[in-house]
């Protein structure tokens, strides 16, 4: 990189830093939030949504519309990557890694799956939620591709299944949103389907269902991204 480019980069970065510092100093003091929405959420979140985890309550109840937008962004990314990368649908695969790694991951993978499901379904009780658990579920497909070869991934968990899972997750989310309108409320309002006492698994209205929908959507979407990237990588090793 030449010297003028260096000077240009330093100039741009220092301008960006000054802009960020100025806008950071314009932020209100943390003690000025006394009568703002933050107190409302902290005080009334449990009675209004039934979710012990306030972050999940905000993400999938108060601001569920934003989460819908984020899932749409993921959907757009998946569509773009698949459009760019998958010109051939046939799987070409390596034979995976050694026998020891295959056996070890054969024992580990069910527990990784269980952990992902736990993170998704307990999103309203403990840290986590649809996004995090969904990425863990997507990691299982990555393990399949790397450890057992993408041929195995194609056979056990085909692209059709992934597409089906992603679409059904998105449809569950949007369907819950339209159920709110049909029942006479707002789009994506909390339907109070599960109304056990706060702190149990079957509580928090429709938040667990939205968690499950987002979890399957994100997991299958990331699996599709990884599969469409890896499917031609090991081309020379094919002698199946």
């Amino acid at each position: 990189m030449s010297k003028t480019k260096h000077i240009f980069a330093v100039l741009i970065l220092s301008l960006l830093g000054i802009t960020l510092l100025v806008s950071l100093s314009k932020l209100p003091n943390q003690f000025e939030y006394a009568n703002s929405i933050y107190h409302h959420v902290v005080n009334n979140s449990i009675t209004e949504t039934g979710s012990l985890n306030f972050v999940t309550a905000i993400l999938y109840d108060y601001r569920a519309y934003d989460s819908l937008g984020e899932s749409t962004i993921i959907f757009g990314a998946v569509s773009g990557i698949v459009l760019l990368l998958s010109r051939k649908t046939l799987p070409v695969s390596s034979h995976g890694l050694s026998f020891i790694v295959k056996r070890t991951f054969g024992m580990l993978t069910p527990f990784i799956f269980l952990f992902g499901i736990y993170i998704i379904t307990h999103g309203h009780l403990s840290p986590g939620g649809g996004f995090q658990g969904g990425v863990i579920l997507g990691a299982i497909s990555i393990i399949f591709s790397i450890v057992y070869g993408s041929e195995f991934d194609y056979k056990r968990y085909s692209p059709t299944t992934k597409t089906l899972l992603e679409t059904s997750g998105a449809l569950l989310f949007i369907g819950l949103g339209f159920m709110g309108i049909l029942l006479g409320g707002n789009f994506l309002m909390n339907l109070n389907i599960l109304n056990a006492e706060v702190g149990s698994l079957l509580s928090a209205g429709s938040i667990p269902f939205i968690n499950i929908g987002i979890g399957f959507k994100i997991g299958a979407g990331l699996a599709i991204i990884f599969y469409s990237m890896i499917q031609k990588t090991f081309k020379e090793e094919v002698d199946l």
Binding site: P127, G128, G129, Q132, I136, A139, I225, F226, M229, T233
Partner: peptide, 21 residues
Amino acid sequence: PDVALAEAVIGAGLNTAIFMT
């Protein structure tokens, strides 16, 4: 802990796998 979980799963796990690919 929510952000920590997301960072661990996405940053340390998924990003590494995708960059390696």
